[in-house]
Nucleic acid binder design. Structure first.
Lengths: 120, 120
DNA sequence: TCCATATTTCAACGAATATTGAAATGATTG
DNA sequence: CAATCATTTCAATATTCGTTGAAATATGGA
């Protein structure tokens, strides 16, 4: 992951409603949730929610697929892993005695191959 | 960690220069770096840097101590751990078969007890 | 005390952001 | 095809943010 992408991801998460949306999707898992369900659950106006979904998607933090008239949003765990890897990259000068590399949530379902390594 | 603190930490990191500063401090480890060294390393004006340090500190991401006429800034690894814990909290509905809890960089030096558990 | 170094404070400006309201698009059902 | 539901697009507004420049504070040495 590069600086620009990391900033984008962090900026996308650095907002009350978006963070709530993202965490909801993280908890929902790979299956995702319909936009309407998220709106109802968090009490957000549909257009406001679209705006936030858009930012999360532009940052690569979520995916969308259409199911009938609903749009299903799901968290992208690989991006979260990359972000955490970027934040803790070369931690403490890479001294293995001082630092341990980070690893975040992995769905391990409906997403077969997913490398644990993220060298920035 | 609570929502407000998480948003504050994410917002603090969601900016090019601040993210660069923070990563530099992460790599510097618990010993930290003088403000001037950071400024020189990143080519930032001293007052601009103070502004950014202030935001990082307000978010609990760094600490400061004075050493002579220099101010030594250091990353707070515990906050990073809490943040990662918050982001991945109850991942995939808490289904242990699908998700593994996250753990970030731990200095393990000059910072003895540090719980791995962060239940938000 | 006087001077140089290191960092902070203050005021100001242009740019970006979140929310709102109304209208439009796309998909399903009868 | 008409009606309805789910979501998106567009324009407008108030707020927040990052950077700059000049001046102030604090520490250490001659």
């Amino acid at each position: 992951m590069e600086q620009t992408d990391a900033v984008a991801a962090l900026a996308a998460l650095a907002q009350d409603n978006r963070l709530a949306v993202y965490r909801l999707l993280v908890q929902a898992g790979p299956e995702g949730m319909a936009a309407g369900s998220v709106a109802e659950r968090l009490g957000l106006a549909p257009n406001t929610l679209t705006f936030h979904f858009d930012r999360l998607r532009a940052a690569g933090l979520v995916t969308v697929r259409r199911d009938g008239r609903s749009m299903i949003y799901a968290a992208r765990f690989d991006t979260m892993n990359s972000l955490i890897g970027y934040l803790t990259d070369n931690c403490c000068g890479g001294n293995p005695a001082q630092c341990a590399p980070a690893a975040a949530c992995k769905p391990a379902i409906k997403r077969a191959k997913q490398r644990t390594k993220q060298t920035a």
